[in-house]
Design a protein around this nucleic acid. Structure first.
Lengths: 201, 201
DNA sequence: CGGTTACTTGACTAGCTTCAAGCCTTGTGG
DNA sequence: CCACAAGGCTTGAAGCTAGTCAAGTAACCG
């Protein structure tokens, strides 16, 4: 089995140092907000959604973790309870590894620690961006920021938005109806294009 | 000059590798949202406020950086424009160092890279917490989360809240009046104590 | 073709923001 | 020691708008 070049940490190395793979079915929770953090995770297959819930149970999507990417790092390294909940958003396989084992691994492979540093920097940056989204005053502003941050192409490229209105709502903290009405206004103003219910930005 | 034990990176090492110290007066901007990221910063003295502004100019405080702590790391390591603005919230001295010089430093001092990893983990965690604050539905919920995250003592300790109502507003994205009215309700409900205009939680 | 999911629309409401005005507290200078 | 300025805090009234609820319609998928 060739190691995946895209993984933050080579999965064979994770296994060698005591990592354990496990499959989670769609909707299953991997850990919950408030739980004591015991493991560091890396996705092998599928997709994991990280979200936090407020008192009324409304879930705000923080981000999705794809194959090769890690999650649950911050709480385990800072010895804090998880601040978010991790849920398999489709059938997923993840490797989990305890803190001591991870530290052994990082000790033996300093270049992985270095990779992790850059990886953390990316997450920090993404986190700043999502704060910007939530700081927007109007739904239009929040949605525009969200769409901008998630553009693959450059500024002048118009591309199909790969999110449902519900997903946009979950990322921006708005309600579906609000997202729909805001997108309609933005369509009239030419800020987005809606063709056959598909959104282009 | 003895090196400060509390600094993320020993300031003498920073200087040796080409870091430059500079003083900023109260209110002065160190870098602005959208600027190209050129430097990594560490505070020597004073306090720096990191905030992001929305289209209407309303500023959301992300966090304050105290002496010994770093800021501006994520954008420079990911080669992105700054997502926030950094402003001296009191007269402050900061050291700035370019990316190549920093990478040389990290290469020569792997243990500093390791410290930085834990430092990043703490920032990521703090970032998750501030997202939770913004995800709160009601002002009460936002304020409670903010106060909880900023408690020094344990759950059962009641202590003076070291923030003005305006500062709480800037952290939670609310308006002063809303914070005042929410705190009054929370006082009636026994969730906080207001004695002589000082808030205890 | 039938069931499920995604999207849409309208009416109503709650509550945060805004604007305006005034009060209290603290620190400073004469 | 007092007067005053400045910043922080408080209050009230009014309006806007996102949230909520309810009832649909359209697209997708097996």
């Amino acid at each position: 089995m060739a190691s995946s070049k895209k993984s933050v940490i080579d999965q064979n190395i994770l296994i060698t140092y005591g990592g354990v793979a496990k499959r989670y079915e769609k909707g299953e929770l991997i850990y919950q907000e408030g739980n004591i953090a015991n493991f560091f995770y890396q996705v092998i297959e599928g997709k994991v959604r990280i979200f936090c819930a407020n008192d009324e149970g409304k879930e705000l999507t923080r981000y999705y973790v794809l194959a090769g990417q890690t999650f649950g790092e911050a709480p385990i390294l800072t010895n804090k309870p998880y601040a978010c909940t991790a849920q398999a958003s489709a059938s997923a396989v993840v490797i989990k590894i305890g803190i001591e084992k991870l530290l052994n691994l990082l000790h033996d492979f300093p270049e992985i620690a270095n990779d992790l540093l850059f990886n953390f920097a990316q997450k920090l940056y993404a986190s700043s961006c999502s704060t910007q989204i939530l700081n927007g005053q109007t739904p239009e502003e929040k949605i525009t920021r969200f769409l901008t941050h998630n553009k693959k192409g450059g500024e002048n490229v118009i591309e199909r938005v790969p999110f449902t209105r519900q997903q946009i709502a979950d990322f921006t903290g708005l309600r579906v109806e609000t997202v729909i009405r805001a997108l309609l206004r933005m369509n009239e103003q030419g800020k987005v294009k809606i063709i056959n219910r598909k959104v282009y930005f």
